[in-house]
């Protein structure tokens, strides 16, 4: 009997083998994670800043859709740092939102929201005007909906249709009707994705609900308190 066979027949051998395999493989993964984490974090931050600026690209001087995609990290950071201020909602300060200016002129606010979709959490950025009554745009930042169906909430046409929709008149919050995808665009109505009613409704209802919650937290538009 060879020494290797004898070793393999020891009762502790499988435990030792798995322990050594675990240490080797997880060490390699930990090393790769450690080496790449700054790069990943930098991309996530850049992606977030680009998305946020993109929602206000018509209002911020000097950028448009075509050159935003071509901008490098330095340019994105420069615009972000001059136009965007991170704020917290009172009283507990746990909710972050962003105040956006063009020069000295306040142009709107941006809120990161999360809501339940069909398969998981949908995250988006919502840009609202200074009166806190009209959507300036939304950007889906993360979603796990069915590709080709609910996953189409990330398509430009679906996101862009929210711009200009009023959600508040005085203290009353409005609701938006869901209409078929091929319908002619209407005010106070959202064209839902064919075969993906749940995902379309999750975004629409979730957005309205989150905005109402923010309003109820008594955040005066234009105030950082």
């Amino acid at each position: 009997m060879s020494s290797r066979t004898a070793l393999k027949e020891k009762r502790l051998y499988p435990v030792l083998f798995m322990l050594i395999l675990s240490i080797i493989l997880t060490s390699i993964l930990a090393l790769f994670f450690e080496l790449s984490k700054e790069r990943v974090a930098a991309y996530q931050e850049l992606s977030f800043r680009r998305d946020l600026i993109g929602l206000f690209q018509k209002q911020i001087s000097g950028i448009d859709n075509s050159n935003l995609a071509m901008m490098d990290i330095k340019q994105i950071n420069s615009i972000y740092e001059s136009a965007v201020t991170e704020l917290h909602i009172a009283p507990k300060q746990e909710i972050i939102y962003y105040q956006v200016k063009d020069g000295n002129q306040l142009i709107g606010f941006c809120y990161p929201f999360s809501m339940s979709g069909l398969w998981g959490t949908i995250s988006l950025l919502a840009a609202v005007d200074v009166d806190f009554s009209t959507i300036m745009g939304i950007r889906i930042t993360n979603q796990n909906e069915t590709p080709g169906l609910g996953g189409r909430i990330s398509e430009d046409w679906f996101q862009q249709q929210f711009a200009g929709h009023r959600f508040r008149a005085g203290n009353e919050f409005l609701t938006w009707e869901l209409i078929p995808e091929k319908s002619v665009p209407q005010k106070e109505a959202i064209r839902q994705i064919t075969g993906a009613t749940i995902s379309s409704r999750s975004v629409t209802d979730g957005l309205l609900m989150r905005l109402k919650q923010i309003y109820q937290l008594q955040v005066p538009a234009g105030s950082d308190k």
């Binding site: 390699i28 993964l29 790449s36 990943v40 991309y43």
Partner: peptide, 21 residues
């Protein structure tokens, strides 16, 4: 168990690589 561990290792490696690069 060992085979599954090896497979999971490479899948996580692919995931980390895609996220980084």
């Amino acid at each position: 168990m060992a085979q599954t561990f090896i497979i999971a290792f490479y899948v996580i490696l692919v995931d980390l690589f895609l996220k980084a690069f």
